[in-house]
Simulated assay, not measured.
Amino acid sequence: MARSNRRTLLTLLLVWFLATVNMLDASSTLKRFEFRKVLMGVVARIVVYAPDREIAAWACSRAFQRIADLEDLMSDYRPHSELMRLCAEGHLAPFRVSDDLFFVLQRALELSQRSNGAFDITVGPFVALWRRARQTKQLPSEEELHQARQLVGWDKIQLDPENRTVKLAVPNMKLDLGGIAKGYAADCALKVLKRFGLSRALIELGGDIVLGDPPPNRKGWRIGILDEKGKPEKFLELTNCAVSTSGSTEQFVEIGNRRYAHIVDPRTGLGLTKLVLVTVIAKDGITADSLATALCVLGEKEGRKLAEAYGAIAFFRERDL
């Protein structure tokens, strides 16, 4: 083993040992480091407090790699991802999946049931229609919506926890984890950092933020809650939780004197006709990310009830498009 690699390994082992006996938490030894990398279609950002750059860089590289591995599993843009192989083969026979994908699917279906279908990862065929609608400025036809509806429905996914398999009820289903996977990936990245003894960390993936212990000599991380124009309206000091923001404030299409948002209601197959911005504070990233998506569809009255059921806090901004 090269001397530099041996030195890095010994340093990391020392960090891990000190963390286990609560010696690493001395604020005077920690410095702020920030790293960025494009993953999951967004700029992934990690802020961490560590004794030195070498330790911070190594730990963050492992955290980024964990996110990249999850992207390989759950991407709906990569034809050979585990998710896409499930979509292609899952109707033929029960399809065995990884622990990560099975866990995300379980959580997704739980939220689908509790939100009465406002959150639904089978929405892919509807999303494809509305992507085309934004390009052509033409609404999907009733026949196109009808055909897509035959492929949509969270109850068309059957999970077998004992064998960790997934069965899809019909062929050509398109699962889309865009409303849940980034939150889960951020959770996993924080766990990696904690294994290296670096618990004072922030992970950001687009509109999803997961927070560990606060920065040294601070009560929490200063997080801005956005107004409908996307500017911070208020600031909160938060720690050991997750914050996710979702909304239709920027992407929409005008067809027939009516504006339709890029967010699709899985229950109707239509784009939302209201401007909505929802920020959710929850115990972890997978909860905050998926709830933010569901609450955009549900609206404030029903959304607050669902957020409370998950022990989450939600901030709403709504008006007609």
Rank of each mutant, 00 (worst) to 15 (best):
R78C: 04
S75V: 08
E71M: 07
S75E: 11
C60Q: 02
Q65K: 14
A59R: 01
W58M: 05
S61R: 13
S75R: 03
I46C: 04
A68Y: 11
R66M: 14
V47T: 15
A50K: 01
I67P: 13
S81I: 05
S81M: 07
M74F: 14
R62T: 04
M74T: 14
F64M: 11
R78P: 00
L70V: 09
R66T: 15
F64R: 11
R53I: 01
R53L: 09
L73T: 13
L73R: 06
S81R: 03
R66C: 13
Q65P: 00
A56T: 04
D76K: 12
A57Y: 00
A56G: 06
A68P: 03
L70T: 09
R62Y: 05
Q65G: 08
A56P: 08
H80T: 13
A68C: 05
D76Y: 13
A56N: 05
Y77M: 13
Q65N: 14
R66I: 07
D69W: 09
C60E: 00
A63Y: 07
E71G: 09
M74W: 13
V48A: 03
Y49S: 01
V47K: 08
S81N: 06
A68T: 04
F64L: 12
I55L: 04
D69N: 13
D69S: 13
H80C: 03
I55R: 02
R66E: 15
P79M: 06
I55N: 02
D72Y: 09
F64T: 10
A63M: 07
D72F: 07
S75C: 11
A57R: 09
C60I: 10
A57S: 14
V48C: 07
R66Y: 05
E54Q: 12
A57W: 00
Q65F: 10
P79T: 08
A68E: 15
L73E: 15
V48Y: 04
P51I: 03
I67T: 10
A57I: 00
I55M: 02
I55Q: 02
R62F: 06
S61T: 10
E54T: 11
D52N: 14
A59F: 09
Y77K: 14
R62Q: 15
I46P: 00
Y49E: 01
L73H: 03
I55E: 01
A50Q: 01
V48F: 05
E71T: 06
R78G: 02
A50H: 01
I46M: 08
P79R: 12
A59L: 06
V48Q: 04
H80F: 12
E54N: 07
F64S: 12
D69A: 15
L70F: 13
W58R: 11
F64Y: 09
A68Q: 15
A59D: 09
P51F: 02
P79N: 09
S81F: 06
M74H: 06
R53V: 01
R78H: 10
H80Q: 13
